[in-house]
């Protein structure tokens, strides 16, 4: 019995190792090509900008040049103002562009943006390239969906005005979990891509 359990554990570990190796191959493959790197760059930067705009941390305002920082920015930076949103510590105005700098939100947005970028890069390369790995074009769409979800998540209840929903305890709870769900979904999509890689190809 214990031998069976041990064998099962070893099998599961081996499976995860293989999955990670396959995913690694897919990512390295994507980044070895120019279209993969371009897709990653465009998708990541675009996603981060949309994420910050969704938070209303990035947008247009009266023309000016300004940099102002709150007193005690380190303490403020970790003050949560709503689920997965933290206090901005600085305002940057450059021409018509206004940017509120919340370090933890920039870090979170960057992490999500990197995941979205990697997902799309792998999918685009798989779709356009030779059969380095056997991934269908559906992977691209699957990778984009969680990114879209987390984009909604960043806007909070005000997005309800747009979609015509009334806030309720359930709806607010769902919104609170969209960001971690999006992160998990992006990692899951990437690993799923890995399952489609043929290491012997």
């Amino acid at each position: 019995m214990s031998a069976d359990v041990a064998a099962g554990s070893q099998s599961a570990v081996a499976h995860v190792e293989r999955l990670l190796r396959q995913t690694g191959v897919a990512i390295r493959g994507a980044f070895s090509r120019r279209d993969g790197r371009a897709t990653f760059g465009v998708a990541s930067v675009s996603y981060l900008l949309v994420y910050l705009a969704g938070l209303r941390h990035l947008g247009f305002g009266p023309w000016g040049v300004e940099l102002s920082v709150v007193a005690d920015p380190l303490a403020r930076a970790t003050r949560m103002v709503s689920p997965f949103q933290w206090e901005p510590v600085a305002l940057v105005v450059a021409g018509p562009v206004e940017l509120l700098v919340s370090p933890l939100n920039v870090a979170l947005g960057t992490a999500l943006a990197v995941l979205v970028g990697v997902n799309l890069a792998v999918s685009v390369v798989a779709y356009r390239g030779p059969k380095a790995c056997k991934i269908g074009p559906g992977a691209g769409a699957a990778a984009g969906l969680p990114g879209l979800l987390s984009g909604f998540a960043c806007c909070g209840p005000t997005i309800l005005l747009v979609v015509g929903l009334q806030a309720s305890a359930t709806v607010l709870t769902v919104f609170q979990w969209l960001v971690p769900f999006a992160g998990l979904a992006l990692v899951g999509t990437l690993l799923w891509v890995g399952t489609n890689v043929d290491l012997e190809a």
């Binding site: 209303r56 901005p88 600085a90 206004e98 005005l161 009334q166």
Partner: peptide, 24 residues
């Protein structure tokens, strides 16, 4: 605090739009 005070997350009163003008 740092906020983008020119932008109202719910809409606008001048002119009136968004949440303030909606029947919802």
């Amino acid at each position: 605090f740092q906020r983008r005070y020119g932008t109202d997350p719910y809409g606008s009163y001048n002119p009136k739009r968004g949440y303030y003008a909606s029947a919802q």
